[in-house]
Every structure is written in structure tokens, then in C-alpha cells.
Design a binder for these strands. Structure first.
Length: 372
RNA sequence: UCCGGGGUAGCUCAAUGGUAGAGCAGGUCGCUGUUAACGACAAGGUUACAGGUUCGAGUCCUGUCCCCGGAG
């Protein structure tokens, strides 16, 4: 039985199927940080997302045994995505300059109009980046070409991820440019073994979100990414405004989200897949996820904790000591645990959706997870 | 026992006689299409002890205690 717009599905790719809803694990440099190739599947991960910007130079490496750099480096055959580099327009530009994330924490606005920053310059043709002294120009055409060389199963249109602090006029202008970029991406997308997803923008303005979803949603994409920034506590309402205008028969991916609360919101809005650095980054920073909430394993109170990490013989106490001694293995053990935990959560959600117990599952889960 | 060096935050060490600081450890918090195995903040002191000189002493002088090295 359906729960709102939530839906179960199977995403088929040349490298295997993905049961959805699914959490996509971030592998920016074609590796899940701290993990070895064989670790990835051991965590139950179905799909990973790498980054075109970060793999730009590597993408020029010639194929070996018909495998692209992405496939070689990942070291395991499985479904893959590559992001287009559009997020770096934000993360290396407005985000750094304004000191803000893509999800607003406080109600604040900015007079910053975009679209030139010290290391990012946006023009109609594409984006000039300057980072670590190196110059790089990425356009819809070069992003798609690079993603075709990298060979992921699912690739994304080149877009501009705007800041939640951008005012309405700039967000509108940027969105319309992203729409033009989307058409250009479709034109140069020649490898039909790869699914190309268009990306909905519109920032925190729901009118723009709906408009973007209508425009992108009627273009000949194989699926749709929902990108950009969000207002404070507006994930549900923003997703509702977007998904209403996306076709039912194509997959939807929510880019760069999210937290445990976001997962439920996204699934209930009708999102099929979403990716986020939270499981992996926070693991490296010592934050472990459990059914009774996240904990900081570095704190002294876990020094002798005998509870075991998911799928491991190691205990919280052992991991605590590894972190305290700055052992390289700490990040790997923590990452294995967190990725397993998020994948397991999605597995439980899929099971609950399948047998109609989603609402009950969610209520019980959150009571435990959010307990004081 | 003598000679020399030293004793400052939990640890390792700074501080021309002029408001005692840093790094690490420990604490709290943060992390949303990874420039992040990172970052922010707060706390932490009878400067071994007792006197003295000085407007003012971690700093100079005297004594005591302790540590290190060398000699015996």
C-alpha cells in the first residue's frame, strides 16, 4: 500500500539493479574515503556517486581493459553515478564566500547577487573555476563529455547550485540559465547506455521550484535530480512543490541530502534515491549512528563500551581507542559502521513500505532515534 | 658531597624586570550533489616553596626542597 507519494521501485542499470528508495554513498574521487574496494559492497551499498569536477584530470586517462578511470579506481563492479560539477559552482563559490551550507539554518538573507567569486566566475557559456592556482572551465558540453568518458551508469546535467542566501531575482536568472544548460546537455548526450538526469533548481522559492520542475520535467531526460538549496525547515514543502510536476514513470534523485529526518521527508515526497556525505564524513569525525541516536565515539564515556559495531567484531571501546590514538583504521571502522547503518535503515524502510507498516515503523524508529 | 643545568596549564615548552602564552591532551559543539579522517568555541595557573631587592619579579638576590647530567 502506498504511503502518500512514497514509492518502492527497481532502478535498472548496466551494472546492476538498485532497490529504491536507496541511499547513495558518496565516492567523490571514485573511492569511498577510508574504504577499500571490497569494503563497499560489504556495507550493503547499492549505488555510489563520484564527482566530475574532482575527476576532471583523471578522466583523461586512457581506458584499460575497456574500463574507465572511475571503474578502475572504484575497483568493484556496481551501479554508479557522477555529479556534473554543478555543486562546485556553489561549494567553491558562494558557499565559501558566504560561509553557508545548502540547507539554511537560520532565517537570514543576503544582498549578494552572485555570480562572481574569487575562484568561480559564471557566464552563459559555463563556469570558470580557479582553485589551487589552476584554471578550469566547465560547460554543459564539457561536463557531459567528461561524464561520458568516466562512464557512470547515471550522469547529471551541468547546473548551477545556488545559495539559499541568493535573492529571488538572481535565483530566477540562474534557474533559467540552468534550464538552457540542461538543453545543451541533452544535445551532446550521445552515450545512451548512460542515463542522463536533468536537475531541478529554484532554491528556496517554491514558485521557482514548481516552474523548474515543469520545465526540466518535460525535457527528454531519463530521470531527474532535485538540486540546489533549501530554506530552514522547508524540505517537505519544497519537495512537494517539485515532485508534483515530475513524471511518475522516471526516477528521482535528491542531490546532497541528507539527515535522518530528510530521509523520511524525501521518501514520503516520492524521491527514489538521495546521496549525502553525512554517513562517511561524520564517521571520520567520530560520529556514529545507532538506532538510539548518533553518538560521538571519541568521548571518554565510550572508552570501555563493549557494544559492537555493525557487521564487525570490534567494539565501540576499541574504536574509541583508535580515534584517541589517531590510528588510520579508526575512520575505516567508523565508515563501515555508518554506511551499514544507513543502508540497513533504508532496507527496513523498503520492507515497511512493502508490507504497509511504514507509518508504524517510522513512529517507533523516531521515538527511539530522537530519544532525549 | 661538589660542579653545572633545570622546576611555568594534565604533558612538552614560550614569555628584553612591565597584562603569564602556544602546541598537544582533556571538554563542549558543529558537519547536507566532500577544497572537510576536519573545523569552531570554551576551560585550564598560588610560575616548586619561603623570604628579599624594586613603583613593578616567572625573570634579579638568599635559603630550602625536588629533577636531570657530570665528577667523586
Amino acid at each position: 500500500s502506498r504511503t502518500g507519494r512514497a514509492r518502492l521501485g527497481i532502478l535498472k542499470t548496466p551494472n546492476g539493479i538498485v532497490l529504491t528508495p536507496a541511499y547513495v554513498i558518496v565516492a567523490t574521487h571514485a573511492e569511498v574515503r577510508t574504504l577499500k574496494p571490497r569494503d563497499i559492497k560489504a556495507t550493503g551499498t547499492q549505488l555510489v556517486i563520484a564527482n566530475t569536477y574532482h575527476l576532471w584530470e583523471k578522466s583523461k586517462i586512457k581506458k584499460q581493459n575497456s574500463k574507465s578511470y572511475l571503474e578502475q579506481k572504484l575497483g568493484v563492479q556496481m551501479p554508479t553515478m557522477t555529479d556534473s560539477g554543478g555543486f562546485q559552482v556553489f561549494s567553491l563559490g558562494a558557499a565559501r564566500e558566504q560561509g553557508v551550507g545548502k540547507v539554511l539554518k537560520r532565517n537570514q538573507t543576503s544582498k549578494i547577487k552572485g555570480q562572481n567569486y574569487s575562484d568561480v566566475r559564471i557566464i552563459e557559456k559555463g563556469v570558470h573555476f580557479k582553485i589551487d592556482g589552476k584554471k578550469r572551465f566547465i560547460s554543459p558540453e564539457t561536463s557531459v563529455a567528461t561524464q561520458q568518458r568516466l562512464g557512470a551508469d547515471i550522469i547529471f546535467a551541468f547546473d548551477e547550485c545556488t545559495s539559499p542566501l541568493h535573492p529571488y531575482p538572481y535565483t530566477l536568472a540562474s534557474m533559467e540559465r540552468t534550464h538552457r544548460w540542461a538543453s545543451r546537455c541533452l544535445k551532446v548526450h550521445t552515450n545512451k547506455n548512460q542515463m542522463l538526469y536533468g536537475i531541478v533548481q529554484g532554491g528556496r522559492f517554491k514558485r521557482l521550484r514548481a516552474q523548474s520542475a515543469k520545465t526540466i520535467g518535460t525535457m527528454a531526460f531519463d530521470g531527474f535530480g532535485i538540486g540546489g538549496s533549501f530554506g530552514k525547515d522547508e524540505m517537505r514543502s519544497t519537495l512537494a512543490a517539485v515532485v508534483a510536476h515530475l513524471p511518475e514513470d522516471k526516477p528521482r534523485h535528491l542531490l546532497g541530502i541528507g539527515t535522518v529526518a530528510d530521509i523520511f521527508d524525501a521518501i514520503e515526497a516520492g524521491v527514489d534515491t538521495f546521496d549525502c556525505v553525512i554517513p562517511t564524513r561524520e564517521a571520520r569525525h567520530g560520529r556514529l549512528y545507532t538506532d538510539t541516536g548518533p553518538l560521538d565515539v571519541r568521548k571518554i564515556k565510550f572508552a570501555a563500551d563493549r557494544r559492537r559495531l555493525l557487521g564487525s567484531r570490534s567494539t565501540l571501546g576499541a574504536l574509541h581507542r583508535l580515534f584517541r590514538s589517531h590510528d588510520e583504521g579508526a575512520g575505516r571502522l567508523a565508515t563501515l559502521h555508518n554506511v551499514r547503518w544507513f543502508n540497513l535503515l533504508l532496507e527496513r524502510i523498503r520492507a515497511a513500505l512493502a508490507d504497509g507498516s511504514y507509518r508504524t515503523f517510522k513512529r517507533k524508529f523516531l521515538i527511539s532515534f530522537l530519544r532525549p
